[in-house]
Amino acid sequence: MTSSPPTGLRERKKAKTRAAIRDHAMRLFEEQGYAATTVDQIAEAAEVSQSTFFRYFPTKEDVILTDDYDPLIVEAIKAQPPGTPPVRALLEGMRAVFLSLDEDEWRSEQRRQRIYQAVPELRVRAMNQTVLAIDMLAGALAERDGESADDMRYRVIAGAMVGVVLAVAPPGGHFDLTDFARVEEALRVLEASLTLR
């Protein structure tokens, strides 16, 4: 990934294998449907064993639902200077990650989102992952401030930020830089009406 390139031969090889598995899986999902595609077919297309597939993705669902950018955003949030308001920290974290993506990375992310939007069982699990996104953001913001991740203030603000993104991000997985600008604008509206302390 442009935003955080793997270092070392082993890490680069692992990143290449993971990307190949996901790319072949998405192609098969598009060609023959999600339900009709098996892990064996994905592994064969990617020229890996089934056990290798499961080392990278615990389930077939995870090929689509695992968001590789979330950990990068968390690290970018934690890297913001002390005292940066939470919404500003999220904005800067998102900017650091999304504005560094190249065209191929944007296309792959849009493709991933289109697939999970088109498959009902994936949409249900994706909504369940919203709670995990709130946990992730609350934890990153609290850690940055030296506070407990269970602090209700951080959970409430993280929930509000996730809600804002869901409210303005386009459905169907056609998220691009224009949409990111809209998310930024909406988060600034939230920022203007929130204080943490």
Rank of each mutant, 00 (worst) to 15 (best):
L91F: 04
V74S: 10
H174F: 13
T178N: 10
R144D: 07
I73N: 01
G173I: 07
E147T: 03
D150E: 13
D102Y: 12
L99R: 13
E121L: 14
T7M: 00
G33M: 10
V183K: 06
G146F: 04
M1N: 07
E75A: 14
S51N: 06
R144Q: 11
L91N: 07
Q80I: 01
W106G: 10
L187W: 09
V119Q: 03
S193E: 11
E185D: 14
P85W: 04
V119R: 03
V39E: 00
R182D: 05
L194R: 11
P85Q: 05
A19L: 05
V156D: 12
E109V: 01
I115P: 07
T178H: 08
S3N: 03
S49C: 04
M94V: 06
P58H: 13
P58A: 15
T66W: 01
E147M: 06
K16H: 11
H174L: 15
M127R: 14
D70N: 08
P71G: 11
K78R: 15
A140C: 14
P170W: 05
L166H: 14
H24T: 11
S3E: 02
D145K: 03
G33F: 12
P58F: 14
A158P: 04
A20F: 00
P85G: 06
E121W: 10
T84C: 06
V63P: 01
A160I: 08
I21F: 04
V165R: 12
Q41E: 15
L122S: 09
D67S: 06
G33T: 12
D62C: 08
S148E: 09
A45M: 08
L141T: 12
G146D: 13
E92V: 00
A160E: 14
M94S: 08
G139N: 15
L187Q: 05
D40A: 13
A181G: 05
V124P: 03
A149V: 06
T178E: 13
P6V: 00
P71C: 12
K13I: 15
P120I: 15
S108V: 05
P171L: 10
E75G: 08
K16W: 10
M127L: 13
P170Q: 05
K14W: 00
E44P: 02
A20W: 00
A149M: 07
V119L: 05
A118H: 08
L9M: 12
V165C: 08
R182Q: 03
G8F: 01
E75P: 00
E191A: 15
A149G: 13
T2E: 11
R182G: 02
L137C: 07
V119W: 04
S4P: 00
L122G: 09
R112Y: 04
D67Q: 05
I73C: 02
M136S: 08
P170G: 03
G93L: 02
T195F: 13
V189Q: 13
R88Q: 15
W106P: 07
V74Q: 13
T178W: 04
A43Q: 09
E30C: 01
V156M: 11
L196S: 10
I21W: 00
T37E: 03
P170V: 10
Y56M: 08
Y56C: 04
A160L: 15
A19F: 02
A181L: 09
I115W: 11
Y69D: 11
P85M: 04
V87K: 01
